[in-house]
Each structure stands twice: as C-alpha cells, then as structure tokens.
Amino acid sequence: MTDLPATQREVRLLAKPAGLPGPEHLGVVETPVGAPARGEVLVRNLFFHVFATLRILIAGATQDTPFPVLRPGDTLVGAAVGEIVEAPEDSGFVPGDLVSHWLGWREYAVVPVAECVRLDPAALPDPAAHLQQGWTAYAALTRGATLRPGDTVFVSAGGSGIGSMAGLIARRLGAGRVIASAGSREKAERLRTEIGYDDVVVRGEGRLVEQLATAAPEGIDVFFDNVGGEQLAAAVAAARPGARFVLIGALSGQLAAEGTGTTAPVVLDSLPLIHKRIEMRGFSSDDFDDKDEWTERFGAWLRAGEISFPHVRVKGIENAPRTLLEVIEGRHIGAVVVEL
C-alpha cells in the first residue's frame, strides 16, 4: 500500500433526522485507508450513485427492504464502480479490475470478495453507465408489463434515474406514445426535449386525472409507476381494458416530508380494476438473473446512438451531501453520480 494515500474521505450520517435530511445531518470525514483482510479486496471508487430512496435508510427504516439501517456515525452506502487496488491471490481479482459493489460514498472501500462483481470495461463506453437503472426498467417493461408495439405508456416520475431510462427503453421497444409526470413546467419541458416524451403531466397544475385524459385520450396500456399516490389513482382512471401496471417505487410516501417513508397510502376505486381487467403487480428486477441481456443490448444501443444515458455527473465527494439533498428534492433529470 506504499503508493496509496494514508487517508481517504467518506460521507457519514451525523444525526438522524425527524423527517427529510438536511445539511446538518450529513458530513464528510477523513479516515485511514483500510487494509483488506482474507476474503476482502481494496477498491478505489471511481463513481457512486446518489439515489433518493437512501432517505429510508437514513431514517433508520428498512421495512420489507434488503438494505441496512443507517445509524449516526455510519457511512452511507450505495452502488459504486471502482477498480481493484489490492486483492489476495485466491480472490479471483487482480489490481486494475473494474468492479461494482455496494460500498459507495467513500473514496476507498474494503469490500468482501463475494460482494464484488467484475465488469467488462468494453461492455459499455462509459464506466459510469454501469450505475444506470436501465436493467430494472428493461426487466419491468419486458418481463413485468410485457410491452407491445404501439402501446401507450405512462411513466410516473419520468425524470428520475429509473424513470428516464424507462421512457427511453419504452420507445426503443416500440411504444406508440410515451407520457411522463413531472413536478414542474420547467422539468416537463426538459423531459420533452431531452428524453423525448410525447407529453408530460405536471403535479400541482390541475387534476392529474384530467391532464392524463388529455395526454392519452384513448387511454394507457402500460403504467410504469415510481410514485404511487394520486398518480396511481389517475392511471387507473386512464387505463384501457387489459392495461398492465408495474409498481417499481412509491416516492409519494418514500419522500414524504414527515415520517420514515415506509408507507405510501393511496385510495383506489377497485371497480375499474375489475371491469377493465387491469393487471397490477409489484415488481423487482432481482427476481430475474439475465442482466447480461440488458447490458449487451444497452451497450449496442449506446454505440449506435439509438439511446442515451441521462445522467448528472458531480465531481468531488465534498459535494455529495448537497447532491443527495438535491436528488431528494427532485432537481435533476436522470441518474446522478458522484465522480471521484
């Protein structure tokens, strides 16, 4: 480790917030660079993902989720891409290998070998693109909703990291019309011009049921739901017979100003569900193990210029706490990654 710095920086939870986190709850601290023990590798992180639902971990609530509870003094966690610096001979890794793992929010990470995934540097033209959530969107649209050519697709939170990918993928899979929801007129216009949505409904600009009826006068066939709440109810009203709903997230509750974000209540009229024979399912891409199919297809689309990777790249770990607060507020379009 003679060529390594003696210290590295990481982002820690300083105090548990009563509601949404603020600047006073997060801090960047300096710590020694760790040495890997048997069964571990040392990784120099290159990028890590900043995602809004980290709020649930910060609140200390992980009901029905596989994520750890974060307590004051803990380092934040999240998907990261880095390169191996040190690895034991029997680890299967060598220095320089590109890997993904879950110990982001720090410049150097000591990671169990079993929790590192080797990445093919040639698979995607940009290493940061491995942090996109396209696999979840692709699996939901192909395995969950079984999108068909000509379908009208509605994507709630269409500017989020996963929502923006869902909009782009739906178009590549042959959707006839793709509609999004957004939190402001300015963001709605950006979604039209940057992502290519046919129309965007705006929260707070009138009843969503009426906006969606105007945007999709013949109804929707597929609903890719990141939000729940009022948007889920509006989608039920707009659904065509046999519509397929995939529920990916519940941001209406997960990012609520009060509470821990573990509930997302919504009132639905169940009669349209029955009469229209709407199929509705909670969805997780973890149920499918063919992610290589997506990576190969995404890489080919990127190289051919047929799809983009919507993202915001923020340089420097010192800017990560502020960036997390901006993501929770919904300021950005696409995935948000910190470059180290």
Rank of each mutant, 00 (worst) to 15 (best):
S270M: 12
L251N: 07
A257V: 05
I179Q: 00
I56H: 00
S308Q: 15
G78P: 03
W135F: 15
E279A: 14
S100Y: 00
P241C: 07
F283V: 10
H49W: 00
Q254M: 14
L247M: 15
P88I: 00
P95M: 07
K291L: 09
E205C: 11
V43W: 01
A238Q: 07
S270P: 08
R12W: 09
R203D: 08
G334K: 04
E318Y: 04
D126N: 11
V222W: 11
L325I: 11
G204L: 10
G204E: 15
G34W: 01
N319H: 15
G158L: 07
H311S: 12
A137M: 05
L26T: 03
K291C: 05
L247H: 12
T75G: 06
V336T: 15
A157Y: 04
I162F: 14
H101T: 04
F309G: 01
N45L: 06
A145S: 14
V69W: 02
L340V: 12
G150R: 13
G261M: 03
Y138C: 11
G167P: 07
E230H: 10
M1Q: 13
P310R: 09
A80G: 03
V28Q: 06
H130V: 01
L57H: 08
T260A: 15
A140I: 10
G78K: 02
D225K: 12
L14Y: 09
F154P: 06
D126L: 03
L251I: 12
L131S: 00
F245D: 00
G204A: 14
Y138S: 10
D198F: 11
A52K: 05
R55M: 02
V113M: 02
L119T: 01
L340P: 04
L26Y: 02
V41E: 01
P36R: 10
F51H: 14
A257C: 06
L70I: 09
A264F: 01
P265H: 08
D3K: 13
T136R: 11
F309E: 00
T214L: 12
T152F: 02
E30I: 07
G249W: 12
E329M: 08
G242Y: 14
R331P: 06
A129Q: 03
T152N: 01
L20I: 09
E115A: 09
R297G: 06
L255V: 10
H49V: 03
Y197A: 05
M165Q: 13
E205W: 07
E306Q: 13
I84E: 00
L324H: 07
L20S: 06
I317M: 08
P310G: 10
A6Y: 05
A52S: 15
A335I: 06
I58C: 04
L191I: 10
A243S: 14
E293A: 15
E89D: 11
Q132D: 08
P321R: 07
E107D: 11
R55K: 11
V337E: 03
P88A: 01
A145L: 04
G104H: 01
H332D: 13
M280V: 04
T31V: 15
L98Q: 03
V111Y: 00
E107N: 07
R281F: 01
T146L: 13
A79E: 08
A182T: 02
R44A: 12
Y197G: 01
N45V: 07
R71H: 12
F154T: 04
V227Q: 08
A52M: 06
E329C: 08
G134D: 06
D64V: 09
A123E: 10
I274A: 09
I58S: 02
V202W: 08
A139T: 04
P17A: 11
W105E: 02
K187G: 10
G242N: 14
